[in-house]
């Protein structure tokens, strides 16, 4: 970063640096709360704050015991397992149906496109508590409340808007003459889809999938209502923990989740760049 222009007056300089300091403070506000839980999760005591030992960087003040608890406590392990069982299934469902629909929606002549789009996007717009309440009542009626299938269906519905949005976004830049060229060269529609279309929209599909995954993996409200004890996921366990038996294990879990989200974020970022590069290369 270069400094202010050399011709800047003193007030301009003050403003220039002042503004940067201000932005720094805001970034601090944005990031610090997430980072602060990382050292706290190594606390040797059952406290949520820095102990004097920790501030002195005394190794005595640090321990892995909260991580040990997470990896040995059957409740947390069950919750982790449930999350791992639910999120991929919901993602798969959302991505398959969502990609097909996004391709359909990007065709030139779709009747009632606006209305269909509104319906497909609605799970993202409707407040979660309302979705949760509606699903709770309705899934109870049809016997899906408290079942694995029920939770997967509900989470898939919540993830669909993200798949639709990301895949449609990649398709907007998609050059239709490519499919026509492929067809004119004798490829059938299926081949065209997998050989031409798919590689180009793949980044969109994957990042849509990641969004759907994180939506399900992070979701608490709907699963609390639609699920039962057998579907208690990691965020649900955290929610109960925060509301009831507050234990620092939550901070250990939180740290692990932050690590996961950094990984996911990097994947999405790489995919986005790749997609831009690919599209930049495609003619038109």
């Amino acid at each position: 970063m270069s400094g202010p222009p050399i011709y800047a007056t003193t007030p301009q300089r003050i403003w220039y640096y002042g503004f940067r300091v201000l932005c720094g403070v805001i970034f601090f506000f944005l990031i610090a709360p997430i980072l602060i839980i990382i050292p706290l999760s190594f606390n040797a005591e059952n406290f949520f704050t820095f102990t004097p030992e920790m501030l002195r960087f005394d190794p005595e003040g640090y321990s892995l015991k909260h991580y040990r608890d997470f990896f040995t406590n059957p409740d947390w392990q069950q919750a982790l397992w449930n999350s791992v069982r639910i999120a991929p299934a919901a993602t798969l469902l959302a991505v398959t149906l969502g990609t097909l629909a996004a391709i359909g929606l990007s065709q030139p002549h779709v009747p009632y496109r606006r209305a269909i789009m509104a319906i497909l996007i609605s799970p993202m717009i409707v407040p979660l508590i309302i979705s949760a309440a509606g699903m709770y009542f309705f899934y109870s009626r049809i016997g899906l409340q408290g079942t694995y299938v029920g939770v997967v269906l509900a989470h898939a519905a919540l993830g669909i808007p993200f798949v639709i949005i990301t895949v449609t976004a990649t398709l907007v830049g998609f050059d239709r003459s490519l499919t026509r060229a492929s067809a004119s060269l004798g490829a059938d529609p299926v081949t065209t889809f997998f050989k031409v279309q798919m590689p180009l929209i793949l980044p969109g599909v994957i990042s849509g999938g990641l969004f759907a995954f994180i939506t399900s993996f992070d979701e608490v409200v709907v699963v609390i209502f639609v699920g039962s004890a057998n579907q208690q996921t990691l965020p649900w366990q955290m929610f109960t923990g925060l509301r009831e038996q507050i234990s620092p294990t939550i901070l250990a879990v939180a740290t692990i989740l932050v690590a996961i989200s950094i990984l996911l974020l990097m994947t999405v970022e790489l995919l986005r760049r790749r997609s831009e590069r690919l599209r930049g290369m495609s003619p038109g």
Binding site: P33, I34, I36, I37, F217, D218, V220, P235, M238, F239, L242, I250, L251, A254, L257, V258, S261
Partner: peptide, 8 residues
């Protein structure tokens, strides 16, 4: 995760 931020 929303819960991570809330617990923070």
């Amino acid at each position: 995760s929303l819960l991570v931020r809330t617990s923070a």
